[in-house]
Design a protein around this nucleic acid. Structure first.
Length: 679
RNA sequence: GCCGGCAUAGCUCAGCGGUAGAGCAACGGUUUUGUAAACCGUCGGUCGUCGGUUCGAUCCCGACUGCCGGCUCCA
């Protein structure tokens, strides 16, 4: 634990002490330091709100002033359990209630491990430490917010109140931290996205989590696509396009149904009228005698008898019969079968739509892989076709839980920078390496320096359950991936038990300027699903083999990636990405000046530069203020002085006036910066 | 989905048990300018939705929806 973490951890103990002074019945769970500070989870009938903070902080201040020593006490398991039962852990003394969470935690500590308590003043807590020597070492702290969290992060466990706070070595550092937070708030992609007119949300008409890309945001979308298309083309990818939905069979085959069903939008059900059911309903509604009906619909009545007798019969007729019975409550259905069909008409009237049966189900795609697999299957494949790299900016739909939606970072419609590489085992390492290199190239373009690759592997104990039962392939592919990572000297961490069900994967974690952590890109190995789809290629030996598949999305989704870029650049995009690249601003409205400005604007447009023209009657300062607010990358300010010299005065957003330049030189520089995608 | 908070004009926000206000934006004029805001005027709101309490609700209560902070989950 670092010094700062120790301070924060100790502050958490002081927080618990203060809470107990006010609410002695409080039950504490865990209270660790975290990246931005610390928290303590507490169960308490009183709802703590920020209004309670001053009171709690006052109590904390008292503990700090009292300068209690943090004492480390070693105890046996039995002693610890006894103390917990007496309510003496995370407590100021004996209490009628046991310290239930602490008791649970003690019981989970492995045999043989040393159990320690820490005591500051009256407060004793089960804790591995370490701590600062005395409470007075806490020089600067503040409670920040209160949230809710499940005990041990499991949603089946009770929810606790999580009190967040932070602490620093001194007041100055804490002030800097809060100032930084204020700055960070200004970079929030939701705020900038609205100010700049990049995207809009319309939960009322379009739906939550379904962003609308406004013209300026669409510019960024399309620039990213252009970058991806160029990069992928150079790397030997081919592009495909696939529909946004597919039949149920697709996802049953891929294995996404039923396991992934919760994350998919509900199926669209196509209905068709079941002729036999319709005939029966109409018969029952007419009140015709069963004999008359039977004369005309012998087979259907027969079906019902067989249903009643538990015999099997014609499949589709059985389905009709069952559908009809399923529409009734179990008691009625039982009576109906027992008594013949006569008394059903009233209920059936209310269930008339039951004569419609589901003839097919379609799902909006939540991923592109199955479609790409079908493209692989669409033509006979030879080993000479491999590696086959199918790329698509595919739009997927995921029914994320409402509470998980978050601006552009977590949405329900996603445009993925997707591609699937089908290759042989021999080709795998090279392909995987090339994909990783592409990642690094992108990161360089975006000036992304802080990232970690998370290498997720399987857990051998969960083969056949969470992970497909192919122990050798797991080992082989994981070794290959690990080797690629080590060889390229990439910064990575290995996390067991987090792989996809079909193979190991690498997720790229990045941190936005605000400090939010995101998985921005993914690179996955799949040695299972191609087999489920029966994908094969003809080998050199004229036998059939199943290809390996690499799923990769270096730019993740447009939604998250652009959300990230907005915060990364604070909306100040490099020229090649800027929604409005250049604005030509006139000083004055004389005819020759305006003509000159129009001419420059037209030339930029001819070269596909996103240039706008401001020849309005505002004064120059006002026009510049407008352009700066809109974060226009380059302003070409033109007055009579420039007109006479054939110049333009260049002003860069956020950097101010950089002086006059010959018109041609300024334009050439702009074009070059765009072409090279300069950062 | 769960816990908590919030919902007033296009945006940022004020207000209050007696049917609403500012700044910016938009629109119409005036102004003709050398690097972040020239002036005047006009328009704009069923105070998220539904229900309840009340003589009367934007305000108090409840439900719903959405958003925000977290948890869980994830590209």
């Amino acid at each position: 634990m670092t010094e700062l973490e120790t301070i924060r951890h100790s502050t958490a103990h002081v927080l618990a002490t203060a809470i107990l002074r006010i609410w002695p019945e409080a039950q504490f769970a865990a209270g660790p330091p975290v990246e931005q500070g610390f928290y303590y989870d507490v169960e308490l009938p009183h709802r703590i709100t920020p209004e309670d903070f001053p009171r709690i902080e006052e109590e904390m201040q008292k503990e700090i002033k009292a300068n209690h020593k943090f004492e480390r006490i070693e105890v046996s398991r039995e002693e610890a359990i006894q103390l917990a039962k007496e309510g003496k852990l995370a407590s100021l003394g004996a209490r009628p209630e046991a310290s239930k969470f602490k008791l649970d935690i003690v019981e989970r500590i492995p045999e043989g491990e040393t159990i320690t308590l820490y005591k500051n003043g009256d407060f004793t807590d089960l804790c591995a430490g370490p701590h600062v020597s005395h409470t007075s070492r806490i020089k600067a702290f503040k409670l920040t917010h209160v949230a809710s969290a499940y005990y041990k992060g499991d949603e089946n466990n009770p929810q606790l109140q999580r009190i967040y706070g932070t602490a620093f070595k001194n007041k100055t550092q804490m002030d800097e931290y809060f100032a930084m937070l204020e700055e960070a708030k200004k970079r929030d992609h939701r705020k900038i996205g609205q100010e700049m007119g990049l995207f809009a949300m319309d939960p009322d008409y379009v739906g939550p989590g379904l962003p609308l890309w406004l013209p300026k945001g669409t510019v960024i979308v399309e620039e990213l696509e252009r970058l991806a298309k160029e990069t992928e083309f150079a790397a030997g990818y081919v592009r495909v396009r696939t529909p946004h939905l597919a039949r149920e069979k697709m996802y049953k085959t891929s294995g996404h149904l039923p396991y992934y069903e919760e994350s998919m939008f509900p199926a669209m059900e196509l209905l068709e009228t079941d002729q036999k059911a319709a005939a029966l309903i109409s018969f029952l509604q007419q009140g015709t005698s069963i004999e008359d009906f039977a004369a005309e619909n012998n087979d259907l009545i027969d079906t019902y008898r067989r249903v009643k007798d538990g015999l099997t019969g014609d499949e589709s007729a059985m389905e009709s019969a069952r559908a009809l019975l399923a529409a009734l409550d179990p008691v009625t259905a039982k009576t109906a079968v027992e008594m013949g069909l006569v008394a059903l008409s009233d209920q059936l009237e209310a269930n008339e739509r039951r004569k419609d049966v589901v003839s097919d189900r379609y799902y909006l795609k939540a991923m592109n892989c199955p479609h790409h697999h079908r493209i692989f299957a669409a033509e006979p494949r030879s080993y000479r076709d491999l590696p086959l790299r199918l790329a698509e900016y595919g739009c997927c739909y995921r029914y994320e839980q409402s509470g998980e939606l978050f601006g552009l970072m977590r949405v329900r419609s996603l445009n993925m920078n997707d591609a699937h590489i089908y290759c042989t085992e021999e080709q795998f390492a090279e392909e995987f390496r090339a994909v990783n290199e592409m990642y690094l190239k992108y990161f360089q373009i975006f000036g992304l320096e802080k990232y970690v690759m998370r290498f997720s592997t399987h857990d051998p104990e969960k083969l056949g359950q969470k992970f497909v039962n192919e122990p050798e392939l797991w080992k082989k592919t994981e070794d290959m991936v690990r080797r690629v990572l080590v060889d390229s000297g990439i910064n990575f961490v290995e996390v067991p038990n987090e792989a996809a069900f079909y193979g190991p994967k690498i997720d790229v974690q990045v941190w936005s300027a605000i400090g939010r952590e995101f998985t921005i890109a993914t690179n996955q190995v799949d040695f299972a699903v191609p087999k489920r789809f029966g994908l094969t290629y003809r080998t050199r030996d004229n036998t059939d083999a199943t290809p390996l598949c690499i799923h990769r999305a270096p730019l993740g989704t447009h939604e998250r990636f652009i959300g990230f870029l907005i915060e990364h650049y604070a909306g100040n995009f490099p020229l090649w990405l800027a929604p409005e690249q250049v604005r030509v601003i006139t000083i004055g409205t004389e005819e020759p000046l305006v003509e000159y400005a129009k001419n420059i604007h037209a030339e930029l447009r001819r070269h596909q530069v996103r240039a706008e023209l401001d020849i309005g009657t505002d004064n120059m300062k006002g026009k510049i203020a407008d352009a700066e607010k809109a974060k226009v990358h380059t302003m070409l300010v033109i007055g009579n002085r420039d007109l006479e010299a054939g110049n333009v005065s260049v002003r860069l957003h956020g950097k101010g006036n950089v002086g006059a330049k010959p018109r041609d030189a300024a334009i050439a520089e702009i074009l070059e910066s765009i072409r090279e995608r300069r950062g």
